[in-house]
Simulated scan of single mutants.
Amino acid sequence: MQTIAIIGAGVTGLSCAVRLLRAGFKVSIFDRSGFPGQGASAAAAGMLTPLGESAELPLRFVEAGLKAIGIWKDLLADEMPCALKRRGSLLVASAFDRPLLTAFQRGIEPLSDRWVMLDRAGVRTLEPCLSPVYEDGLYFPEDAHLDAIEALKAMVRLTLQMGGQLICEETEVSDLWDRYDRVIDCRGWTQDHDPDLHAVKGEALSLLPPDGFQLTRPVRFFSGAELFYAVPHAGDGLIVGATMRREALPVEDMPRLDGLKSLLDAAQTLDRRLNRAYLKEVLCGVRPSYPTKLPRISTGQDGAYIAANGMYRHGFLLGPVVAQAVMDLVNSDDTPCLSMFSDRNNDRGAL
Protein backbone atom coordinates (compact mmCIF):
# COMPACT_ATOMS: atom_id res chain seq x y z
CA MET A 1 0.00 0.00 0.00
CA GLN A 2 1.40 3.39 -1.01
CA THR A 3 1.88 5.91 1.78
CA ILE A 4 1.00 9.49 0.87
CA ALA A 5 1.65 12.73 2.74
CA ILE A 6 -0.52 15.75 1.99
CA ILE A 7 0.61 19.20 3.07
CA GLY A 8 -2.33 21.54 3.64
CA ALA A 9 -5.76 20.80 5.16
CA GLY A 10 -7.81 23.26 3.14
CA VAL A 11 -10.46 22.18 0.68
CA THR A 12 -7.96 20.87 -1.89
CA GLY A 13 -5.88 18.90 0.59
CA LEU A 14 -8.90 17.38 2.32
CA SER A 15 -10.55 16.55 -1.01
CA CYS A 16 -7.39 14.73 -2.08
CA ALA A 17 -7.23 12.90 1.25
CA VAL A 18 -10.80 11.62 1.09
CA ARG A 19 -10.46 10.55 -2.55
CA LEU A 20 -7.17 8.70 -1.93
CA LEU A 21 -8.36 7.05 1.29
CA ARG A 22 -11.45 5.75 -0.50
CA ALA A 23 -9.14 4.25 -3.12
CA GLY A 24 -7.19 2.36 -0.45
CA PHE A 25 -4.09 4.52 0.02
CA LYS A 26 -2.58 5.28 3.42
CA VAL A 27 -2.76 9.06 3.93
CA SER A 28 -1.34 11.53 6.45
CA ILE A 29 -2.21 15.25 6.32
CA PHE A 30 0.05 17.95 7.72
CA ASP A 31 -1.18 21.44 8.59
CA ARG A 32 0.33 23.82 11.10
CA SER A 33 -2.98 25.62 11.77
CA GLY A 34 -5.11 22.59 12.67
CA PHE A 35 -7.96 20.68 11.06
CA PRO A 36 -9.55 21.98 9.01
CA GLY A 37 -6.81 24.41 8.03
CA GLN A 38 -7.29 28.10 8.72
CA GLY A 39 -6.08 29.46 5.38
CA ALA A 40 -8.08 30.69 2.38
CA SER A 41 -10.60 27.83 2.56
CA ALA A 42 -11.71 28.88 6.04
CA ALA A 43 -12.51 32.37 4.72
CA ALA A 44 -14.57 31.15 1.74
CA ALA A 45 -18.27 31.74 1.17
CA GLY A 46 -18.81 28.27 -0.33
CA MET A 47 -20.26 29.35 -3.66
CA LEU A 48 -20.66 26.56 -6.23
CA THR A 49 -21.67 28.72 -9.17
CA PRO A 50 -20.00 27.43 -12.34
CA LEU A 51 -22.74 28.72 -14.62
CA GLY A 52 -22.86 32.08 -12.88
CA GLU A 53 -19.11 32.37 -13.48
CA SER A 54 -19.18 31.08 -17.06
CA ALA A 55 -18.21 34.52 -18.38
CA GLU A 56 -14.74 34.07 -16.88
CA LEU A 57 -14.31 30.27 -16.66
CA PRO A 58 -13.45 28.22 -19.76
CA LEU A 59 -16.30 25.92 -20.72
CA ARG A 60 -14.57 22.72 -19.62
CA PHE A 61 -14.09 24.21 -16.15
CA VAL A 62 -17.78 25.12 -16.02
CA GLU A 63 -18.61 21.49 -16.77
CA ALA A 64 -16.08 20.37 -14.15
CA GLY A 65 -17.76 22.66 -11.61
CA LEU A 66 -21.16 21.12 -12.34
CA LYS A 67 -19.61 17.69 -11.82
CA ALA A 68 -18.15 18.89 -8.51
CA ILE A 69 -21.61 19.79 -7.19
CA GLY A 70 -22.57 16.14 -7.60
CA ILE A 71 -19.37 15.05 -5.87
CA TRP A 72 -20.15 17.35 -2.93
CA LYS A 73 -23.60 15.78 -2.66
CA ASP A 74 -22.05 12.32 -2.39
CA LEU A 75 -19.30 13.46 0.01
CA LEU A 76 -21.71 15.12 2.42
CA ALA A 77 -24.57 12.62 2.12
CA ASP A 78 -23.83 10.86 5.40
CA GLU A 79 -21.89 13.46 7.37
CA MET A 80 -23.60 16.79 6.67
CA PRO A 81 -26.24 16.64 3.88
CA CYS A 82 -27.82 19.94 4.95
CA ALA A 83 -24.55 21.79 4.25
CA LEU A 84 -25.23 21.67 0.49
CA LYS A 85 -28.03 23.83 -0.95
CA ARG A 86 -28.99 23.32 -4.60
CA ARG A 87 -31.13 26.40 -5.21
CA GLY A 88 -29.29 28.03 -8.09
CA SER A 89 -27.80 31.52 -8.08
CA LEU A 90 -28.83 35.00 -9.18
CA LEU A 91 -27.13 37.96 -10.81
CA VAL A 92 -29.24 41.10 -10.37
CA ALA A 93 -29.04 44.65 -11.63
CA SER A 94 -30.78 47.97 -11.08
CA ALA A 95 -31.72 50.20 -13.99
CA PHE A 96 -28.43 52.02 -13.49
CA ASP A 97 -26.49 48.75 -13.73
CA ARG A 98 -28.44 47.35 -16.69
CA PRO A 99 -25.58 47.97 -19.21
CA LEU A 100 -23.26 45.88 -17.02
CA LEU A 101 -25.81 43.05 -16.87
CA THR A 102 -26.30 43.23 -20.64
CA ALA A 103 -22.54 43.00 -21.20
CA PHE A 104 -22.37 39.99 -18.88
CA GLN A 105 -25.26 38.34 -20.71
CA ARG A 106 -23.61 38.85 -24.08
CA GLY A 107 -20.47 37.25 -22.73
CA ILE A 108 -22.19 34.02 -21.70
CA GLU A 109 -24.66 33.67 -24.58
CA PRO A 110 -22.14 31.93 -26.87
CA LEU A 111 -21.15 29.54 -24.07
CA SER A 112 -24.36 28.34 -22.46
CA ASP A 113 -28.14 28.58 -22.55
CA ARG A 114 -28.57 27.16 -19.04
CA TRP A 115 -29.83 30.38 -17.53
CA VAL A 116 -33.09 32.33 -17.38
CA MET A 117 -33.62 36.06 -17.88
CA LEU A 118 -35.81 37.57 -15.16
CA ASP A 119 -37.73 40.80 -14.81
CA ARG A 120 -38.40 42.52 -11.48
CA ALA A 121 -41.30 40.18 -10.66
CA GLY A 122 -39.18 37.13 -11.41
CA VAL A 123 -36.36 38.38 -9.20
CA ARG A 124 -38.79 39.06 -6.37
CA THR A 125 -40.38 35.62 -6.75
CA LEU A 126 -37.04 33.94 -6.12
CA GLU A 127 -35.79 36.39 -3.48
CA PRO A 128 -38.70 38.32 -1.92
CA CYS A 129 -36.39 40.24 0.42
CA LEU A 130 -34.40 41.86 -2.36
CA SER A 131 -35.03 45.53 -2.94
CA PRO A 132 -37.43 46.38 -5.80
CA VAL A 133 -34.62 48.51 -7.22
CA TYR A 134 -33.39 45.33 -8.89
CA GLU A 135 -35.34 45.35 -12.14
CA ASP A 136 -33.48 42.61 -14.05
CA GLY A 137 -31.68 39.40 -13.29
CA LEU A 138 -30.12 36.23 -14.60
CA TYR A 139 -31.02 32.99 -12.85
CA PHE A 140 -28.67 29.98 -13.02
CA PRO A 141 -30.78 27.06 -11.73
CA GLU A 142 -28.00 24.43 -11.64
CA ASP A 143 -25.71 26.44 -9.34
CA ALA A 144 -25.47 25.74 -5.61
CA HIS A 145 -23.76 26.78 -2.40
CA LEU A 146 -22.60 25.12 0.79
CA ASP A 147 -21.60 25.96 4.32
CA ALA A 148 -17.85 25.99 3.79
CA ILE A 149 -16.80 25.39 7.39
CA GLU A 150 -19.28 22.56 7.93
CA ALA A 151 -18.17 20.94 4.67
CA LEU A 152 -14.51 21.12 5.73
CA LYS A 153 -15.33 19.66 9.15
CA ALA A 154 -17.26 16.84 7.49
CA MET A 155 -14.22 15.99 5.36
CA VAL A 156 -12.01 15.96 8.47
CA ARG A 157 -14.41 13.45 10.05
CA LEU A 158 -14.41 11.33 6.88
CA THR A 159 -10.62 11.37 6.84
CA LEU A 160 -10.45 10.08 10.41
CA GLN A 161 -13.18 7.47 9.85
CA MET A 162 -11.22 6.00 6.93
CA GLY A 163 -7.99 5.81 8.91
CA GLY A 164 -6.29 9.00 7.78
CA GLN A 165 -3.74 10.58 10.09
CA LEU A 166 -3.89 14.28 10.99
CA ILE A 167 -0.60 15.85 12.06
CA CYS A 168 -0.70 19.43 13.35
CA GLU A 169 2.79 20.67 12.60
CA GLU A 170 4.66 22.72 10.05
CA THR A 171 6.63 20.66 7.60
CA GLU A 172 8.55 20.95 4.35
CA VAL A 173 8.48 18.60 1.41
CA SER A 174 12.11 17.67 2.01
CA ASP A 175 11.23 16.46 5.52
CA LEU A 176 8.89 13.79 4.15
CA TRP A 177 10.81 12.01 1.39
CA ASP A 178 12.21 9.24 3.58
CA ARG A 179 8.85 8.54 5.27
CA TYR A 180 6.34 8.52 2.39
CA ASP A 181 6.13 7.20 -1.15
CA ARG A 182 4.54 10.41 -2.42
CA VAL A 183 4.07 13.97 -1.22
CA ILE A 184 1.11 16.06 -2.40
CA ASP A 185 1.59 19.78 -1.84
CA CYS A 186 -1.68 21.71 -1.35
CA ARG A 187 -0.34 24.61 0.71
CA GLY A 188 -1.64 27.44 -1.45
CA TRP A 189 0.47 30.57 -1.62
CA THR A 190 3.71 30.67 0.33
CA GLN A 191 6.57 33.08 -0.16
CA ASP A 192 9.27 31.84 -2.57
CA HIS A 193 7.45 28.53 -3.09
CA ASP A 194 6.35 28.83 -6.74
CA PRO A 195 7.53 31.82 -8.79
CA ASP A 196 4.49 31.61 -11.10
CA LEU A 197 2.05 31.76 -8.18
CA HIS A 198 0.96 35.09 -6.74
CA ALA A 199 -1.11 36.07 -3.74
CA VAL A 200 -4.56 37.60 -4.04
CA LYS A 201 -5.81 39.06 -0.77
CA GLY A 202 -9.51 38.61 -0.19
CA GLU A 203 -11.85 39.93 2.49
CA ALA A 204 -15.52 39.26 3.16
CA LEU A 205 -18.02 40.20 5.87
CA SER A 206 -20.01 37.70 7.89
CA LEU A 207 -23.20 39.51 8.87
CA LEU A 208 -26.30 38.93 10.92
CA PRO A 209 -28.96 40.84 8.95
CA PRO A 210 -31.84 42.61 10.64
CA ASP A 211 -35.20 40.87 10.92
CA GLY A 212 -36.98 40.80 7.60
CA PHE A 213 -33.92 40.35 5.39
CA GLN A 214 -32.95 36.87 4.30
CA LEU A 215 -31.63 35.29 1.12
CA THR A 216 -32.01 31.67 0.05
CA ARG A 217 -29.31 31.43 -2.65
CA PRO A 218 -26.12 33.25 -3.73
CA VAL A 219 -26.89 36.66 -5.22
CA ARG A 220 -24.29 38.59 -7.16
CA PHE A 221 -24.78 42.29 -7.70
CA PHE A 222 -22.95 45.37 -8.90
CA SER A 223 -21.50 48.02 -6.63
CA GLY A 224 -19.96 50.66 -8.81
CA ALA A 225 -18.64 48.66 -11.75
CA GLU A 226 -17.50 45.74 -9.58
CA LEU A 227 -19.30 42.46 -8.94
CA PHE A 228 -19.91 41.44 -5.32
CA TYR A 229 -21.83 38.54 -3.83
CA ALA A 230 -24.13 37.85 -0.90
CA VAL A 231 -24.41 34.22 0.21
CA PRO A 232 -26.70 32.72 2.88
CA HIS A 233 -24.66 31.40 5.76
CA ALA A 234 -25.25 29.51 9.02
CA GLY A 235 -28.99 29.85 9.36
CA ASP A 236 -29.96 33.50 9.18
CA GLY A 237 -26.46 34.79 8.45
CA LEU A 238 -25.06 36.34 5.30
CA ILE A 239 -21.58 36.59 3.79
CA VAL A 240 -20.91 39.65 1.64
CA GLY A 241 -17.76 39.61 -0.45
CA ALA A 242 -15.30 39.74 -1.78
CA THR A 243 -12.36 41.98 -2.36
CA MET A 244 -9.63 40.74 -4.70
CA ARG A 245 -6.30 42.50 -4.47
CA ARG A 246 -2.92 41.22 -5.56
CA GLU A 247 -0.27 41.77 -2.89
CA ALA A 248 3.41 40.88 -2.99
CA LEU A 249 3.70 40.16 0.75
CA PRO A 250 0.17 39.84 2.15
CA VAL A 251 -0.65 39.73 5.84
CA GLU A 252 -3.03 36.78 5.87
CA ASP A 253 -5.14 37.39 8.96
CA MET A 254 -5.42 41.19 8.86
CA PRO A 255 -7.93 43.01 6.61
CA ARG A 256 -7.17 46.35 5.03
CA LEU A 257 -9.38 49.37 5.64
CA ASP A 258 -9.92 50.06 1.94
CA GLY A 259 -11.15 46.49 1.53
CA LEU A 260 -13.54 46.83 4.44
CA LYS A 261 -14.86 50.12 3.09
CA SER A 262 -15.64 48.61 -0.31
CA LEU A 263 -17.47 45.72 1.37
CA LEU A 264 -19.50 48.02 3.61
CA ASP A 265 -20.41 50.14 0.57
CA ALA A 266 -21.41 47.00 -1.31
CA ALA A 267 -23.62 45.77 1.54
CA GLN A 268 -25.44 49.10 1.61
CA THR A 269 -25.79 48.99 -2.18
CA LEU A 270 -27.44 45.58 -1.93
CA ASP A 271 -29.98 46.82 0.60
CA ARG A 272 -30.01 49.81 2.95
CA ARG A 273 -31.48 47.63 5.67
CA LEU A 274 -28.04 46.06 5.99
CA ASN A 275 -26.94 49.29 7.68
CA ARG A 276 -28.54 47.71 10.73
CA ALA A 277 -26.83 44.33 10.33
CA TYR A 278 -24.44 43.09 12.99
CA LEU A 279 -20.88 42.36 11.92
CA LYS A 280 -20.11 38.86 13.19
CA GLU A 281 -16.69 38.42 11.63
CA VAL A 282 -14.32 39.75 9.00
CA LEU A 283 -13.18 36.84 6.85
CA CYS A 284 -9.71 37.31 5.47
CA GLY A 285 -7.56 35.00 3.37
CA VAL A 286 -4.83 34.84 0.76
CA ARG A 287 -5.89 33.13 -2.44
CA PRO A 288 -3.22 31.45 -4.57
CA SER A 289 -3.47 32.36 -8.24
CA TYR A 290 -1.59 31.65 -11.43
CA PRO A 291 -1.75 34.22 -14.25
CA THR A 292 -4.58 32.23 -15.87
CA LYS A 293 -6.56 32.27 -12.58
CA LEU A 294 -7.03 28.52 -13.07
CA PRO A 295 -5.74 25.58 -10.98
CA ARG A 296 -2.63 23.73 -11.98
CA ILE A 297 -1.23 20.28 -11.15
CA SER A 298 2.50 19.75 -11.58
CA THR A 299 4.94 17.00 -10.67
CA GLY A 300 8.55 16.46 -9.70
CA GLN A 301 10.92 13.83 -8.35
CA ASP A 302 9.80 11.32 -11.01
CA GLY A 303 6.18 11.65 -9.91
CA ALA A 304 6.84 11.32 -6.19
CA TYR A 305 6.03 15.01 -5.73
CA ILE A 306 2.65 16.41 -6.84
CA ALA A 307 1.62 20.04 -6.41
CA ALA A 308 -2.05 21.04 -6.71
CA ASN A 309 -2.34 24.80 -6.48
CA GLY A 310 -3.70 28.04 -7.88
CA MET A 311 -7.33 27.55 -6.85
CA TYR A 312 -7.87 31.34 -6.73
CA ARG A 313 -11.63 31.83 -6.11
CA HIS A 314 -12.58 28.30 -7.13
CA GLY A 315 -11.40 26.09 -4.27
CA PHE A 316 -14.78 24.63 -3.31
CA LEU A 317 -15.99 24.67 -6.90
CA LEU A 318 -13.06 22.73 -8.37
CA GLY A 319 -11.39 21.08 -5.36
CA PRO A 320 -13.18 17.72 -5.73
CA VAL A 321 -12.31 17.56 -9.44
CA VAL A 322 -8.68 18.47 -8.76
CA ALA A 323 -8.65 15.60 -6.23
CA GLN A 324 -9.87 13.22 -8.92
CA ALA A 325 -7.11 14.42 -11.24
CA VAL A 326 -4.51 13.90 -8.48
CA MET A 327 -5.70 10.34 -7.97
CA ASP A 328 -5.50 9.74 -11.73
CA LEU A 329 -1.90 10.94 -11.57
CA VAL A 330 -1.11 8.67 -8.62
CA ASN A 331 -2.59 5.77 -10.60
CA SER A 332 -0.65 6.81 -13.73
CA ASP A 333 -3.91 7.32 -15.64
CA ASP A 334 -3.74 9.97 -18.38
CA THR A 335 -7.33 11.23 -18.31
CA PRO A 336 -9.07 14.36 -19.62
CA CYS A 337 -9.64 15.36 -15.98
CA LEU A 338 -5.90 15.31 -15.39
CA SER A 339 -4.89 16.98 -18.63
CA MET A 340 -7.10 20.03 -18.08
CA PHE A 341 -5.06 20.98 -15.00
CA SER A 342 -1.62 20.75 -16.60
CA ASP A 343 0.31 23.98 -17.04
CA ARG A 344 0.29 23.33 -20.79
CA ASN A 345 -3.46 22.94 -21.14
CA ASN A 346 -5.15 25.32 -18.70
CA ASP A 347 -5.01 28.21 -21.13
CA ARG A 348 -8.11 30.35 -20.62
CA GLY A 349 -8.65 30.69 -24.33
CA ALA A 350 -8.93 26.97 -25.04
CA LEU A 351 -12.48 25.68 -24.91
Rank of each mutant, 00 (worst) to 15 (best):
K153F: 00
Y229H: 12
P288D: 02
A225W: 13
P141I: 00
Q268I: 14
M80F: 14
F25D: 08
V18L: 10
Q105E: 15
A234P: 01
A55W: 14
D78Q: 14
V123G: 07
I69D: 08
L329G: 05
A64S: 12
R272Q: 15
P232Y: 03
D136N: 13
A44H: 03
G300E: 12
K293I: 09
L283V: 04
G315Q: 04
G224W: 09
D181C: 05
L351E: 15
A121F: 01
L274H: 08
D78L: 14
L111E: 15
A64Q: 07
L205M: 04
D147I: 01
I6T: 03
S339H: 12
C129E: 02
A93I: 07
C16F: 03
P141C: 03
L138M: 12
L197C: 10
A266T: 01
Y180E: 07
C129P: 05
A83L: 04
R217M: 15
R272N: 14
G310Y: 04
L227F: 07
L166D: 08
V62W: 06
L260K: 00
F316P: 07
G10V: 06
T12M: 12
L176D: 00
M162I: 07
L279C: 07
A304Q: 14
K67L: 14
V330N: 07
L91R: 10
V123T: 08
S94I: 00
E135D: 09
L294K: 07
K280F: 09
R287C: 09
R86P: 05
S174L: 10
V326K: 03
L318C: 03
V18F: 08
F213I: 08
G188I: 06
P210M: 02
G70R: 13
E226Y: 13
L249G: 09
R32I: 11
L57E: 12
A230M: 01
N309C: 11
D271A: 09
A266F: 00
T102S: 15
T159W: 03
Y229W: 10
E252R: 12
L101A: 05
L227W: 10
D211C: 11
A204D: 08
E247T: 00
L111N: 15
G65D: 03
L238G: 01
F96Y: 12
L208H: 08
A234M: 08
T292L: 06
I306R: 05
F96E: 15
D74H: 11
L238H: 01
H314M: 04
F61Y: 15
T49Y: 09
D302F: 06
G37F: 01
L51A: 10
K26G: 13
V173Q: 05
L48F: 07
L351H: 13
S332Q: 12
S206R: 14
L111K: 15
